[in-house]
């Protein structure tokens, strides 16, 4: 579904090589996490995949079609929830706007908006403005907007980096539940090793800058995940320890 091959990005002017050679793929319906040491170009990678940033070399393909700008059936959840929602619109309007742009008939639109808001547990605050909600709830709105858009591919850029631990656990389970229900192909960028192991079917480890793929690790945990039992499995600790060592190595390389 998503093919990234030989992706390279050099920022002109600053002459910084953010990505050297990144290649991986994500199959339809997979949930893949991307981790790497801080400053390794995770966000650059995500912006290239999203079509927001033209790569210097290499290519990104979604369902076989090359990405030159934001693809029509791709949604992104950004880290900065406070800035990705329109403050002058209500929660409902925020979720509805992209659907209006798709010229979707009003009836279907209403169903999708109501359905996705209910799915993230925000049905009763649909008429509030984003700034009236807590950070976790704002990020739920952004997730509802992405889900209602019915994307083929969902990108998430460290979406829970700025919320507290309890909220974070809730939101992780929300993402898993939505992914299971919709089967949407998901690329989840994070700097949190535990989160990557808990959520992903696979974890892609990026090296320190200039960035290449260090490892493409299959997470062989049972498909049903649970905050308590999954995290206390011995295998979870193994994977976590392995990835931790990898990240340390990536850091040392610099």
């Amino acid at each position: 579904m998503l093919e990234v091959s030989g992706l390279r990005k050099v920022y002109e002017g600053r002459r910084v090589e953010a990505l050297r050679e990144v290649t991986f793929q994500v199959d339809a319906g997979e949930l893949v996490c991307v981790i790497g040491p801080s400053g390794c170009g995770k966000t650059t990678l995500l912006r290239c995949v999203a079509g927001l940033l033209p790569p210097t070399a290499g290519s990104v393909k979604v369902a076989g079609a090359a990405v030159t700008g934001p693809p029509p059936r791709m949604a992104v959840v950004f880290q900065e929830y406070g800035r990705s929602l329109f403050p002058w619109m209500t929660v409902r309007q925020n979720v509805e706007l992209p659907l209006k742009e798709k010229r979707m008939p009003a009836g279907r639109r209403g169903e999708l908006v109501a359905g996705s808001l209910a799915a993230v547990g925000l049905a009763d605050v649909a008429d509030a403005h984003p700034w009236q909600l807590s950070g976790g709830m704002q990020q739920r709105v952004a997730i509802a907007r992405a889900v209602a858009y019915e994307p083929q591919v969902l990108l998430m850029d460290e979406p829970f980096a700025a919320v507290d631990a309890q909220t974070r656990a809730d939101l992780e389970d929300l993402v898993l539940a939505l992914w299971r229900d919709t089967g949407v192909t998901t690329l989840f960028v994070t700097h949190d090793i535990d989160e990557a192991v808990y959520l992903g079917q696979r974890v892609i480890v990026l090296s320190g800058s200039p960035t290449v793929v260090m490892e493409d690790l299959k997470i062989d945990l049972p498909p049903e995940r649970d905050q308590l039992t999954t995290r206390s499995l011995p295998r979870f600790a193994d994977l976590r320890g392995h990835l931790y060592a990898q990240i340390q190595r990536a850091r040392g390389d610099r």
């Binding site: 999203a50 900065e80 992209p98 742009e101 907007r145």
Partner: peptide, 28 residues
């Protein structure tokens, strides 16, 4: 806001609609 701008690009909000929902409101 750049993030809001990127959001518009991702969700296909462009042209007049971008002007109305993002540019004019954001600069208001």
């Amino acid at each position: 806001d750049e993030v809001l701008s990127d959001t518009c690009r991702m969700y296909g909000v462009r042209g007049l609609s971008r002007l109305r929902h993002l540019v004019l409101r954001g600069a208001s």
